[in-house]
Simulated scan of single mutants.
Amino acid sequence: MTGPLAGLKVVEMAGIGPGPFCAMLLSDLGADVVRVARPGTPHDPNDVLARGRSVLQLDLRDPASVQQVLALVERADALIEGYRPGVMERLGLGPDVCLARQPRLVYGRMTGWGQHGPLSHAAGHDINYIAISGALHAIGRSGGAPVPPLNYVGDFGGGAMLLAVGVLSALFETARSGRGQVVDAAMTDGAALMSAMMYGFKAAGQWNNQRGENMLDGGAFFYDTYACADGRFVAVGAIEPQFYALLRERCGIADDPAFDAQMDRDAWPLLKLRLAEVFRTRTRDEWCQLLEGCDACFAPVLDWDEAPLHPHNQARQTFCELEGVLQPAPAPRFARTPAAAPVRSQGATPDAVLARWALPHTAPRAAVATA
């Protein structure tokens, strides 16, 4: 194991989406993550979020399997799970039981609504969690409905990444206190937290509740996307005066006095139409030749196939390939303890996983798959 988290042992209770993403982040950075999954769970190379872990297939309805998980817990630094409140307790794997077996354990719990509150036991998905945080209301065009931002804000940003930060923070504290604790990561909390800057802008009178009419939500003509002559798009974010001046110069509108009113919100709708006309005069690649790499705060809008081929992404090796599947590479980068390239598996037999964690092979029903 290489990476800054080498030596860290984590038990992952298999789930979907944000839970596996958090486990992938930890594994990418060197943690030894053992994923507890249902028997018969197939290996799917297209499941990018499952990379880099050993998968211990256990039927948790079997008391012997529960004891096997608890044996792993005794050697673990952390456990992460994303079930509804009460599910782990009913399985006999709740935090009280696990912390009794391993007092230094960091027990990471991630749900949409959190472990308590009037909605905590209700079903939901990313779109519901970001709806009550205020984040969803702010995303979309003026006069239109809110637009779901894929599941970046709730599941992955407000959920998985918040859980990763919470678990690592708790581990830092455990190193000093010698005591474990429970981390309650709710996507509603995380999505609200990610909106901190906007709440500050609103308090200062610099942001309003009208979607698509603020500086960073597509309301400003100098911070938006534009269609080109070939139907492809470019993204412009020239906020600062020096960057805006360069954009005007390269776009041939430096001498147009109408564009002097950069921060006049009343002028934004008309200037957006004017700038859209400018960008429709060239193809996306022609605009890239003219603007990319300068301080005009410009970039082409690339699709899933184009992004891995961009020279900047290739130079940084932002993407990699595993089992024929192109996928994002581990991030961030570390100068002294770099993460290794993602691998399919870190143990091919039950004995290998158990021996790696200094445990005897005591559960014949356990089977290790590769992920």
Score class of each variant (00 low, 15 high):
V55S: 03
D44S: 10
V343T: 06
R109N: 02
P45E: 03
I16V: 06
I16G: 00
G237P: 05
G15S: 09
A276F: 01
L99C: 06
S133K: 10
Q67R: 12
N208S: 10
C98I: 01
L25D: 00
R248L: 14
V234A: 01
Q242A: 13
D230A: 04
L273N: 10
H125S: 02
E249V: 10
A37Q: 04
M161N: 15
L302T: 03
L5P: 15
T41H: 12
E323G: 04
E12V: 07
A331G: 14
P95Y: 00
G218D: 05
S142T: 13
D155Q: 09
A135Y: 08
R141Q: 09
Q206L: 15
T281R: 15
D47C: 04
L309H: 15
R333Q: 02
A76G: 06
G134D: 10
V167L: 13
Y83D: 04
L150R: 12
Q102L: 10
P42N: 08
V73E: 11
L273P: 05
R53D: 14
G112M: 03
V236K: 06
D295H: 08
T370F: 12
R344D: 06
S169A: 15
A276C: 03
L8P: 13
R38W: 09
G252V: 05
A185E: 03
W113P: 09
A329S: 05
P257S: 01
L60R: 12
F21R: 00
F259M: 06
P241T: 06
L105I: 08
G158L: 03
A358R: 15
H310C: 13
